[in-house]
C-alpha cells in the first residue's frame, strides 16, 4: 500500500529511555565465559518501569513539543509486544495520565517491532480524514529475551511518541508512506509463553533485509526520489550491524544513518527502535531536510515514510528533553541486578 499524498505531519515527538544499562560483555561473562555481543550494551527498565510508564513519559514529551494539552488528543494508541496486561488496555491508563478526555479513542496495537508505526500510519488516516485533529501513536517495549539466548544481548527497553496533526502545523511533514508485508515466520511468541523464539539466521535475509529494502525501494519509486535526496535515514535496528548493512545495500552513506543509530548504545528497543531513532534525528534536522524512516516487525512487515522538516522544528525541539539527554544518563548494572529488575529470579 502506497500513500503518496499526505496532508499530515509530526506536530510533536517525545523520547524515553530508562537510565539503566547492562553491557553485552557482562551478559557474555555469565553465559559464554567472556567475550562481547552485537551491541555495546542495552537499556534496562527499572523495577518501577514498564511499557505503560515509558509511554506516559514519551507522550508527555511529545505534548510539550506540540504545545498541546492531553485533552486535545483524539487518539492514544500504544504499539508494543510487552503490554503489562494480557487483557486490559495500556492506552486507557496512558490517556488518563496525559489528561485526555474520556471521549478519546484509546487502543493497543501489536505487530512485533513495528506496532508503533502501525499506529502512526493509522493516525495519519484519522487526521487526514478529519475524524480527529491530533492522534498520538506510541511505540514502547520492555523486550523479553530468554536468559543466555542471542536475543538477551539486545532485547532492550524504551519508548517514543509521535503526535500526528495537519501538515500546516507540523514539525516535519509526512510526505508519503509505503507498507510491505508477507507471512514470514522469523520470530514469534505463542500465547502465555514468557519468551519469544527466533529463526537465527532466518531473521536476516528473508525477513529484516527483504522487507526493509522492499518497502524503502517501493517508497523511493513511488515518490521518484533517490537515497541522495534524503539528509538522514532511520531504520529499525535489532542490532548495530543490520541497519548499517541494509542502508549500504539501499545506497545510503554511513553519515546519513549515524544520528538515528542508537542500537549500538541501547540495544533493540523493539516497537520504539525506529521511532526513537527518528526522535534523535529530528533533534538535529534543519528546515527543508528530508528523512526516510523504515520500521520492521517480525512476522513480517516494514513501514517506510518520507518526511521533511519544517520551519517549526527548530523552536520545538528544546521544549522537552532531547534524546541525547536520556542516552547520557547511563547507570550500569551487573547481571545479578539486571536479573532482579527483569523479574528473572524464581522466588519460590
Amino acid at each position: 500500500m502506497a500513500i503518496t499524498r499526505s496532508d499530515t505531519g509530526i506536530v510533536g515527538y517525545g523520547a524515553y529511555i530508562p537510565r539503566f544499562r547492562i553491557a553485552d560483555s557482562e551478559i557474555a561473562r555469565v553465559w559464554a565465559g567472556g567475550g562481547s555481543g552485537p551491541v555495546e550494551g542495552k537499556a534496562v527498565a527499572g523495577t518501577d518501569e514498564d511499557t505503560i510508564t515509558m509511554a506516559i513519559e514519551a507522550g508527555r514529551n511529545a505534548l510539550r513539543r506540540a504545545q498541546l494539552d492531553g485533552a486535545q488528543l483524539g487518539t492514544v494508541w500504544i504499539g508494543s509486544e510487552s503490554h503489562p496486561y494480557a487483557v486490559k488496555p495500556s492506552g486507557t491508563l496512558v490517556a488518563e495520565a496525559l489528561g485526555c478526555r474520556p471521549t478519546v479513542h484509546a487502543a493497543d496495537w501489536e505487530f512485533a517491532c513495528k506496532a508503533g508505526t502501525e499506529a502512526l500510519t493509522a493516525g495519519m488516516g484519522m487526521v487526514s480524514s478529519g475524524l480527529v485533529e491530533y492522534a498520538l501513536a506510541v511505540g514502547a517495549d520492555t523486550a523479553q529475551g530468554r536468559p543466555g539466548d542471542a536475543l538477551e544481548y539486545t532485547a532492550a527497553a524504551g519508548a517514543a511518541a509521535m503526535i500526528i496533526g495537519s501538515s500546516a502545523k507540523a514539525l516535519a511533514t509526512i510526505d508519503a508512506t509505503v507498507s510491505y508485508v508477507t507471512d514470514t515466520p522469523d520470530f514469534f511468541r505463542r500465547a502465555d509463553r514468557p519468551y519469544p523464539v527466533h529463526g537465527n539466521r532466518f531473521t536476516g535475509e528473508p525477513a529484516y533485509f527483504h522487507h526493509i529494502e522492499a518497502a524503502a525501494t517501493e517508497l523511493l519509486h513511488e515518490i521518484g526520489a533517490e537515497p541522495g535526496d534524503f539528509r538522514y535515514l532511520v531504520l529499525h535496528q535489532p542490532n548495530a550491524k543490520f541497519p548499517q548493512v541494509a542502508a549500504k545495500q539501499l545506497g545510503f552513506r554511513p553519515e546519513q544513518v549515524a544520528p538515528g543509530l542508537l542500537a549500538p548504545r541501547i540495544g533493540n528497543t523493539y516497537s520504539a527502535a525506529a521511532l526513537l531513532g527518528l526522535c534523535a534525528t529530528l533533534d538535529i534536522t534543519e528546515v527543508g531536510e528530508r528523512i526516510m524512516l523504515v520500521s520492521y516487525g517480525s512476522g513480517a512487515g516494514a513501514d517506510a515514510y518520507a518526511l521533511t522538516a519544517t520551519e517549526h522544528l527548530g523552536q520545538a525541539r528544546d521544549r522537552a528533553p532531547r534524546t541525547s539527554v536520556y542516552l547520557a544518563r547511563e547507570q550500569s548494572v551487573d547481571y545479578a541486578t539486571y536479573a532482579r529488575m527483569r523479574g528473572k529470579y524464581n522466588l519460590g
Binding site: G46, T47, D48, E49, D50, I52, T53, I56, E57, P84, Y85, L93, A97
Partner: peptide, 20 residues
C-alpha cells in the same frame, strides 16, 4: 513528577501506578 509502577498486587492482582 514521573508516573511509575507503585505496586504489583500479584499474578492475579492489579498493577498500581502513580507518582514518584
Amino acid at each position: 513528577m514521573v508516573t511509575r509502577k507503585l505496586r504489583d498486587l500479584g499474578e492475579d492482582g492489579l498493577l498500581v501506578y502513580g507518582y514518584k
